[in-house]
Nucleic acid binder design. Structure first.
Length: 367
DNA sequence: CACGGAATCA
DNA sequence: TGATTCCGTG
């Protein structure tokens, strides 16, 4: 099969330097070529998100049903694309599904029973990489909030509105479900006994803060040649039916930062999040991500300062709040949310800065 | 089609 | 670790 495909991901403009946080370094792995989308090292779940995000694959794979739930409409095609990406010409759905099972064994995905080719992301395993949250995670504020401040019991101390808001990011609002004892605590609720609790908590939540080497974090757009910086939050243009976030922060939206109409308390946002750092007047930040790569034809509608193809989540105003029920007691609730990343269909099976350059030149069509 | 075990690989 | 491959079961 064709493994000379170029990574149109590499055509992604660099993350604006603006977005490079002050005084914050991302972990090494984030900058490694193999962490880049388009790399053969891309992970399957990540690849799936890529496909889900692309309009042109709607007939292949698409969000459906509950938030986070997607259906593989054309298993063979998904497998084929995956095979291309990974240079595994003999990939087929049978094998792909084995990999998917690997994911739901790890609770990254889970199977929607009774629905063929239907899976659901458990975003609690897909950590949100988001600066403000990062900062908040580090902040005394956060650590002081809620059950996150460990040691004692599970009961949530009253949260400030901010705290609640924050927490809501990390746990899907769910109905009281006294019947289900198996519900796992959300990230912020996890209790880790012992002295290292705080560190562990942070690492659990933001693995890259700690020593964790390979967190389940979407690969960053930090391949060689890029300005170092996080991908932040890319637009999931084919917006999954994810929950809304009360205060205008939806991690699925391209800019999850409080922009002009932010309802977020400014105090949660250290000034240096803002390129222009004017705490009082939040300068509208250029869209961080919208780095939808590749085919220029895809960029229709993209104008400077706008993100392309922003589709707001189709989910209705009210969440499909229902108790987990489809799986046998496993965590069918989606807790978190995240993401970053966007990318593309097929690309180079080897990543190299050089390849990027070549890709630039070849810009046009791939596939 | 879904699932699991096990060996194997990079 | 995150798959891939093979094999087997239901």
């Amino acid at each position: 099969m064709d493994c000379n495909c170029v990574s149109d991901l590499l055509l992604t403009p660099p993350v604006p330097a603006l977005w490079t946080p002050v005084g914050f370094a991302f972990p090494d792995w984030a900058y490694k070529p193999e962490s880049s989308p388009g790399s053969r090292q891309i992970q399957l779940w990540h690849f799936i998100l890529e496909l889900l995000q692309k309009e042109e694959y709607q007939n292949v794979i698409a969000w459906q049903g509950d938030y986070g739930e997607f259906v593989i409409k054309d298993p063979d095609e998904v497998a084929r694309l995956w095979g291309i990406r990974k240079c595994k010409p003999h990939m087929n759905y049978d094998k792909l599904s084995r990999a998917l099972r690997y994911y739901y064994n790890k609770r990254i995905l889970h199977k929607t029973k009774g629905k063929r080719f239907t899976y659901k992301f458990n975003f609690s395993k897909v950590v949100l990489v988001n600066y403000p949250l990062l900062e908040m995670a580090n902040s005394p504020f956060l650590l002081a909030q809620s059950s996150f401040n460990g040691g004692h019991t599970h009961d949530c101390s009253p949260l400030t509105p901010e705290g609640k808001t924050l927490q809501s990011l990390f746990s899907t609002p769910r109905l009281p479900d006294p019947g289900n004892r198996e519900i796992r605590p959300s990230l912020f609720e996890r209790q880790i006994p012992g002295t290292e609790t705080e560190k562990l908590r942070l690492e659990t939540t933001f693995p890259f803060l700690g020593s964790a080497k390979k967190p389940l974090v979407p690969s960053f757009w930090c391949g060689p040649g890029y300005t170092k910086g996080p991908s932040l939050l890319t637009s999931y243009s084919r917006s999954p039916p994810f929950p809304d976030y009360h205060w205008g922060f939806n991690p699925y939206l391209p800019s999850s930062f409080p922009l002009t109409n932010s309802k977020l308390p400014g105090s949660l946002y250290p000034p240096h999040f803002y390129p222009n750092s004017l705490p009082g007047s939040l300068t509208p930040i250029p869209t961080p991500i919208s780095l939808l790569p590749g085919d220029p034809s895809e960029r229709v509608g993209q104008t400077a300062g706008n993100f392309p193809r922003i589709c707001l989540p189709p989910y209705p105003g009210s969440l499909p709040l229902r108790p987990a029920k489809d799986t046998t007691g496993s965590d069918s609730e989606l807790e978190i949310t995240d993401l970053s990343e966007s990318s593309s269909e097929n690309e180079g099976c080897e990543f190299s800065p050089r390849g990027a350059a070549v890709a630039m030149e070849k810009l046009g069509v791939s596939e």
